[in-house]
């Protein structure tokens, strides 16, 4: 599905969007246990970025390391048919077509802050479903402690994988309780449209309280495992990227500060804002890490 022809006019008119957003926010607050809303800044700044910004400024090294490379190159990837392998400690392992895997899990909209480890941020209106619903479907065995994910490796359309930029395939993982958390979603859409390839079509992970690279794109494999899985950036540079990679203004990347972030689209003089612990979702997720030293487990 090609998205490159879309213009500003194709995006939901702002008035309607705002309306819908308020409804979603209300639904979100009601439906999530424990009053999970959208974090401390929800009221004033959760204005979604434009389609052009979200789909034109991406890190997806399989398609090139420039921010505009994925938008230029990812169109060649075929996401239909798409097979996802589910294996490891699950009741129902196998290779599933995406449609079969998702089945009748309903999609909902989630407007999340997205904080890149490079210290920029956006607000993104995802469409997707809670990962825990998918995990319930595949059946997690009691011994499972982590979920591991893999991105597709398609050398014909992904020029990046022909070079040793990273150790392909791109891999990421979550602790099972992180994966089960209601804020953790699998996204299949953006602004109510199918998710564009450069954003991780046809299905990607979104973990809003972690740095963006944890939210692995174009997933072809999901494994339930007992030991902490391989994570690409952690493997590439363990001093700079931890397994958890929770957004944390107090733990700097060795080469740059994480205390603040530049909001994309704020203009030349507009926007650096303070980064919030857990990207503003501390109320919902901080308890997952009770008793852990977050400097050690960065």
């Amino acid at each position: 599905m090609h998205m490159s022809n879309l213009t500003r006019a194709d995006v939901t008119p702002e008035a309607i969007w705002m309306n819908r957003r308020q409804i979603i926010a209300a639904m979100g607050a009601g439906s999530l246990a424990g009053g999970i809303g959208f974090g401390a800044r929800a009221q004033n700044t959760l204005e979604p970025h434009s389609w052009e910004q979200i789909t034109g400024y991406n890190n997806f090294y399989e398609f090139g390391i420039g921010k505009d490379d994925p938008a230029k190159n990812a169109g060649a990837m075929k996401t239909e048919p798409w097979t996802v392998k589910v294996d490891g400690l699950v009741d129902n392992p196998g290779e599933f077509s995406l449609a079969d895997l998702i089945g009748d899990i309903p999609t909902e909209e989630r407007i999340y802050r997205f904080r890149c480890v490079e210290a920029w941020s956006m607000v993104i209106p995802w469409n997707g479903f809670e990962l825990n619903k998918l995990l319930a479907k595949v059946g997690v065995k009691p011994e499972a402690k982590f979920v591991a994910f893999e991105t597709a490796v398609l050398p014909d359309v992904m020029d990046g994988v022909n070079y040793p930029i990273l150790d392909w395939p791109y891999r990421e993982g979550l602790r099972l309780d992180e994966a089960m958390h209601p804020l953790t979603i699998m996204a299949t859409g953006l602004y109510g449209k199918p998710i564009p390839n450069q954003n991780g079509a046809p299905m990607r992970l979104v973990v809003p309280w972690k740095y963006g690279f944890k939210s692995i794109k174009s997933i072809v494999r999901m494994s339930l495992v007992e030991d902490q899985p391989h994570a690409t950036w952690q493997q590439t540079n363990p001093k700079e990227y931890g397994f958890y990679s929770n957004v944390n203004p107090d733990v700097d990347h060795p080469r740059w500060s994480q205390a603040s972030e530049r909001v994309i689209g704020a203009g030349l003089f507009g926007g650096r804002i303070d980064t919030l612990p857990f990207n503003g979702y501390a109320d919902q997720v901080a308890s997952l890490y009770d008793g852990m030293d977050l400097r050690e487990n960065f």
């Binding site: 052009e52 910004q53 034109g56 400024y57 921010k67 505009d68 920029w120 530049r262 994309i264 689209g265 203009g267 030349l268």
Partner: peptide, 14 residues
């Protein structure tokens, strides 16, 4: 960066 609107992140581009 100032008038062109070509860059999504003009500060970084500059």
């Amino acid at each position: 960066t100032v008038f062109g609107g070509r860059y999504i992140d003009p500060v970084r581009a500059l």
